[in-house]
Structure formats: structure tokens, C-alpha cells
Simulated scan of single mutants.
Amino acid sequence: MRIAILSLALVLAACDGKPSTPKASPPARADAIAHETELLRITLTPEAQRRIGISTGRVTKATVAPARQVTGEIVVPPVTASGVPTSAVTDLRLIGGQQAAADGQITQASAQVRLARITLARTEALVREEAGSIRARDEATAALATAQAALAAARQQRALLGPSVSAMGEQSRPWVRVSVFASDLAAIRRGDQATIRPIGGGTTRAASAMRAPPSANSAAGTVDLFYAIDNHDHAYRIGQRVAVDLPLAGRVEGLSVLASAIVRDIHGGEWVYRRTARNQFVRQRVEVASETRGRALLSRGLRAGAEVVTTGAAELFGTEFGAAH
């Protein structure tokens, strides 16, 4: 009896009369493969690739000038060649007071010079009229020389303090201070131009090497290098941290790929998405030796000729981990 009831239920379900509709294929699918940290193979439909804007490029061999990536700080250039750059961490209240005192000393020394010149002119006139002594003229000459030396010293002291605090943010050609380890100085081409860009990416700018008074940090074992940039558009502000590519000696051979192909995880790992089939992509670990002018030089991780995603890598990263990136 129970068997008959089950058979009847199956017949009724089969004769329901509603046609079954096939499920639409999803635009993206991720299949697990047994590789590093259980990577996924991402499969995208052609429509999904067009919507994301996926584009690829080949990994090529290249010979480039190596560069060392460090960070720098935008600082205020000195007024004269013998001056000292001013950074944003300087106590501006203290330096403003010192500048005011130095300006007062210049005014005072200038007045002393004018008075000494008047005195010298009078004593010289008396000597010509044979109404004064030569000793008085010599003393007036010495007094003028002393006043002029005091004025020169006051002006030099003021120059060491840099531009006025109110004018520090209006620098059209600020300097970039770069701290590098003393052991790395021999490898840096210090007379060549460096390249700076905002941290996090942006347009790069050339920076010219500048001569400045010696500056170093003995506790950290670093030496300061200075470069000047064109900042007429005021894109950079005093105290801003920037990324700096310092040119190194020699040439390096390696594999080159567009820097936009590189994605980085929360641990700092560097990856690219390599196309393994027409609509399939796999994340592959690489190691970036340097980045220069929009291209990354790889030290390991890929072979020449491999096809990697150059546009849309961040979107694939978000697809793989199930969240927008």
C-alpha cells in the first residue's frame, strides 16, 4: 500500500505540466586549484570581460637602469647656497622669533654702517682742510669696516634661517629631503635626476640634485640627500611625504611588465593575473625589483611571453575574494 502511494506521488509530480527553465550561466565563476594558498581559477564570460574592461599584455625582457625606491619629505629651500633647508617639523614659532630678531639685527647694523660712513666723511673733510687728525680718520675708517662686517654677519645669520614663515607655503621650487643608509650611497648616482611622485600613485616629476650643507642622522645611520622640483602649480605642500626613485649605477636585465598589472595583498605580497586560457585567469605571485616610468621590473615569478592582465587586475582581485577592491 505504501509503495503504491509513493508511485502515485511521483506520477503526479511528473505530470505537473510546468516546463523546467534552464539556469542562466553566471558571468564569473571561480574554481579552486591546488596551488599557493589555495588560489582560485577565475573564469569570466566575454561579456564580463568587456564590462570590466580587461586588457592584457605580454611579459618582455628588458634592460633598464636600476632605481632605489625610498620616501622623502618636501622641505623649504634655503635662501642662499650656504643656508639650511627648513622642514615642517621645525618649531615654526621658534624660527619665526629668530627671524624677527635677525631682521632687527640687520636694521641695527645698517644704521651703524650709515653712521660710520657719515663720521668717516667728516673726518676726511677735516683732514683735507688740515683741521683734523689722521688718527681720527683712521679710527673712523676702522669703525666703518667693523660696522660693515657686523652687517654682513647679520645678513648671513638671517639667510641661514630661510624665508619668512608666511612665505614658506608659496615656494615654487621646493626641495625634497631623502634619507638613505650610508651603506647605499656608493650605489646611487648622486648627480643624476631622481623621480618623485605622490605616495599611492600619481604623476611623476623630475627632481634635480642639489648641493646642501652636510646633514645626517647618526642614530639611524642615514645621510640626507636633497633634490629640487618644479612646483609652480603648488601640487606639493611643505611637509608632504613623497615616493622617490633614486637612480643607481649599472644596468639590470629582467622581465618587464606594466606597473598596473601588479596587485598587492594586505601582507605586501605582489601578484599578477596570468591568462591561462581564453576566458580563465589565475593569480600568480611575483617579486618586483623596481618600478620606473610606469613599468615594473620583475626579479622572479614569470617567464618571458606570459600574458598577464594589465587593466582590470584590481577588479579580478575583488572577484576572487568576493568584494570590490
Results as ranks from 00 to 15, higher is better:
A304M: 13
W175M: 04
N231F: 02
L40P: 05
S110Y: 04
Q280N: 05
D230V: 15
Q99A: 00
A187P: 05
A102P: 01
I52V: 08
P27L: 08
H35K: 14
I266V: 11
R122C: 00
G169Y: 02
I238C: 07
G132I: 03
L8E: 08
P66T: 03
L144H: 09
H232I: 02
Q240R: 11
L160H: 00
I238S: 02
R274P: 11
R117G: 12
D138R: 12
A243M: 14
T203Y: 12
D224K: 11
R264C: 02
D138H: 06
A81S: 04
S260D: 15
A102S: 11
A219I: 09
E73C: 04
S256A: 14
R158V: 00
Q171W: 01
S260M: 13
A100T: 03
L12M: 14
E270V: 05
R51A: 02
D230S: 13
E170V: 01
E124I: 05
K23N: 13
R158H: 02
Q49V: 02
L94Q: 10
A167N: 05
V257P: 11
A65N: 12
A206T: 07
Q108P: 07
A187C: 07
G53D: 07
A143Y: 03
H325F: 12
S110N: 08
L92W: 10
D31L: 15
L185I: 10
E129W: 06
P77R: 01
I42T: 05
R295H: 12
P22G: 04
A62T: 10
Q193E: 15
G269P: 08
A100F: 00
V176H: 02
T146V: 06
A219R: 14
Q105P: 01
